[in-house]
Amino acid sequence: MIGLILAIILFNFIAFKTNRRHTQNSILHIWLFTIAFQLIFDTMIEFKYHGYWYFDKEVDWLGLLAHTLLIPPVNMIFLNWYPLQGRLRSRILYTLIWVAAIMGYELLTLLPEPWGYFHYGWWNLWYAAILDPFLFYILIKFYRWIRSLEERI
């Protein structure tokens, strides 16, 4: 529990303190997209197939904190510094660095409570390593779409 609360505070602080790119509209879109996308994915992997879970295997209020307040600011930070106009090589390298950082953070969340709050069923770190670049790609495409809509307004 302590690890989750510290992570929520730290990631939200960094996301909002370092924000130089996002409008209030795009922040709202990033948050809602992240929450919806994560809940859709986690409904299957976490709740139906018990691949992983937060705190315990059942739906609980503490797990809701991780679903709604932890990942959206991380996506804000990722997008804030993402080289949208950069070369393909720099965009791939940036994404791979983030995947490595997320894998490191995920290892920390596996620590025993009160610091850790994440648990594996059949899921493992390598599944996340393979899946995360695709999730970042979807996030980037969504963000580019939101930016194009904002430019039209």
Score class of each variant (00 low, 15 high):
residue 13 F to V: 08
residue 14 I to C: 07
residue 14 I to L: 14
residue 14 I to N: 08
residue 14 I to E: 06
residue 15 A to P: 04
residue 16 F to D: 06
residue 19 N to L: 06
residue 19 N to S: 05
residue 19 N to D: 09
residue 20 R to G: 05
residue 20 R to Y: 00
residue 20 R to N: 08
residue 22 H to E: 06
residue 23 T to R: 05
residue 26 S to I: 11
residue 26 S to T: 14
residue 27 I to G: 00
residue 30 I to N: 02
residue 30 I to W: 00
residue 33 F to R: 06
residue 35 I to S: 08
residue 35 I to V: 15
residue 35 I to C: 04
residue 38 Q to I: 03
residue 38 Q to N: 13
residue 38 Q to D: 13
residue 39 L to G: 08
residue 39 L to K: 09
residue 41 F to G: 08
residue 42 D to T: 00
residue 42 D to S: 00
residue 43 T to E: 15
residue 43 T to Q: 12
residue 43 T to D: 14
residue 43 T to C: 08
residue 44 M to N: 03
residue 45 I to H: 00
residue 45 I to V: 15
residue 47 F to M: 12
residue 48 K to T: 12
residue 49 Y to F: 15
residue 50 H to L: 11
residue 51 G to V: 07
residue 52 Y to H: 07
residue 55 F to W: 15
residue 55 F to S: 10
residue 56 D to H: 12
residue 57 K to W: 07
residue 59 V to M: 15
residue 60 D to I: 02
residue 62 L to V: 08
residue 62 L to W: 13
residue 62 L to E: 11
residue 64 L to M: 13
residue 66 A to V: 14
residue 68 T to F: 02
residue 69 L to I: 08
residue 71 I to P: 05
residue 71 I to M: 15
residue 72 P to R: 12
residue 73 P to A: 09
residue 74 V to H: 01
residue 74 V to K: 02
residue 75 N to P: 02
residue 75 N to Q: 15
residue 75 N to L: 10
residue 76 M to I: 13
residue 76 M to T: 01
residue 77 I to V: 12
residue 77 I to K: 02
residue 78 F to M: 07
residue 79 L to F: 02
residue 80 N to T: 04
residue 80 N to P: 07
residue 81 W to C: 01
residue 81 W to A: 03
residue 81 W to S: 04
residue 82 Y to S: 02
residue 83 P to L: 03
residue 83 P to A: 01
residue 83 P to K: 04
residue 84 L to M: 11
residue 84 L to C: 01
residue 85 Q to E: 14
residue 86 G to W: 01
residue 86 G to S: 07
residue 88 L to K: 11
residue 88 L to F: 00
residue 88 L to S: 05
residue 89 R to Y: 00
residue 89 R to K: 09
residue 89 R to A: 10
residue 90 S to I: 05
residue 90 S to Q: 12
residue 92 I to R: 02
residue 92 I to C: 01
residue 92 I to K: 01
residue 93 L to D: 08
residue 94 Y to H: 01
residue 94 Y to Q: 00
residue 96 L to F: 05
residue 96 L to N: 02
residue 98 W to T: 02
residue 99 V to W: 06
residue 101 A to F: 15
residue 101 A to V: 10
residue 101 A to E: 05
residue 102 I to R: 01
residue 102 I to W: 06
residue 103 M to A: 14
residue 103 M to V: 13
residue 103 M to W: 11
residue 104 G to K: 02
residue 106 E to R: 06
residue 106 E to Q: 13
residue 106 E to G: 03
residue 107 L to T: 10
residue 113 E to H: 07
residue 113 E to C: 05
residue 114 P to M: 09
residue 115 W to I: 10
residue 118 F to S: 09
residue 120 Y to K: 13
residue 122 W to A: 10
residue 123 W to C: 12
residue 124 N to D: 15
residue 125 L to F: 09
residue 125 L to Q: 13
residue 125 L to S: 15
residue 126 W to Q: 13
residue 127 Y to L: 14
residue 127 Y to P: 05
residue 129 A to L: 15
residue 129 A to G: 12
